[in-house]
Simulated scan of single mutants.
Amino acid sequence: MTSIKTIIAVSALSLISFGSFAQSISATGSTLDTAEARIAAKAKAVGAKSYTITSAHVGNRVYMTAELSK
């Protein structure tokens, strides 16, 4: 029973530590390329290894969000 509690505690703590690395950023631009370039620049500025675009909304302007990975 003690080992099960230990495994659950370690699992919970590992999820918390992985979650702390994720960071969301957003950018706007007149085109998809402009907005993505701004996302890439922000990711580089904070030292992220990569980013994943999570949403993009195109209207009069492009609004894009991304999640950074360190």
Rank of each mutant, 00 (worst) to 15 (best):
M1I: 11
S3P: 00
I4S: 15
I4P: 05
I4L: 10
I4W: 00
K5T: 13
T6D: 15
T6K: 13
T6C: 06
I7H: 02
I7Q: 00
I8H: 02
A9K: 06
A9E: 13
S11D: 08
A12W: 01
A12T: 04
L13A: 10
S14A: 14
S14H: 01
S14E: 01
S14P: 07
S14T: 06
L15M: 15
L15Q: 04
I16M: 01
I16N: 03
I16P: 04
S17F: 00
F18P: 01
G19M: 00
F21D: 07
F21I: 06
F21R: 05
A22T: 07
A22H: 15
A22C: 13
A22Q: 04
Q23S: 14
Q23E: 15
Q23G: 03
Q23I: 01
S24M: 10
I25P: 03
I25S: 08
S26N: 09
S26Q: 08
A27K: 02
A27R: 03
A27T: 10
A27Y: 03
T28R: 11
T28M: 11
T28H: 06
T28E: 14
G29Y: 14
G29D: 15
G29R: 08
G29S: 06
S30P: 10
S30L: 12
T31I: 01
T31Y: 03
L32H: 12
L32P: 00
L32W: 13
D33E: 11
A35G: 09
A35I: 07
A37M: 09
A37F: 02
A37H: 13
A37N: 15
R38V: 00
R38Q: 14
R38C: 03
R38S: 13
A40C: 08
A40W: 01
A40T: 10
A40I: 12
A40L: 15
A41V: 01
A41N: 15
A41P: 08
A43Y: 05
A43N: 10
K44M: 09
K44Q: 13
A45R: 05
G47L: 04
G47R: 08
A48M: 00
Y51H: 06
T52S: 12
T52Q: 06
T52P: 06
T52D: 04
I53P: 03
T54C: 09
S55C: 06
S55V: 04
S55Y: 12
A56T: 14
A56C: 15
A56R: 12
H57Y: 11
H57A: 13
H57L: 13
H57M: 15
H57W: 12
V58L: 07
V58C: 10
G59T: 06
G59D: 12
R61D: 09
V62I: 08
Y63D: 10
Y63M: 13
M64H: 02
M64Y: 00
T65A: 11
T65D: 08
T65C: 12
T65H: 09
A66E: 03
A66G: 04
A66S: 02
A66R: 02
A66P: 00
E67Q: 02
L68W: 05
S69M: 05
S69Q: 13
S69G: 09
S69H: 11
S69V: 02
K70I: 02
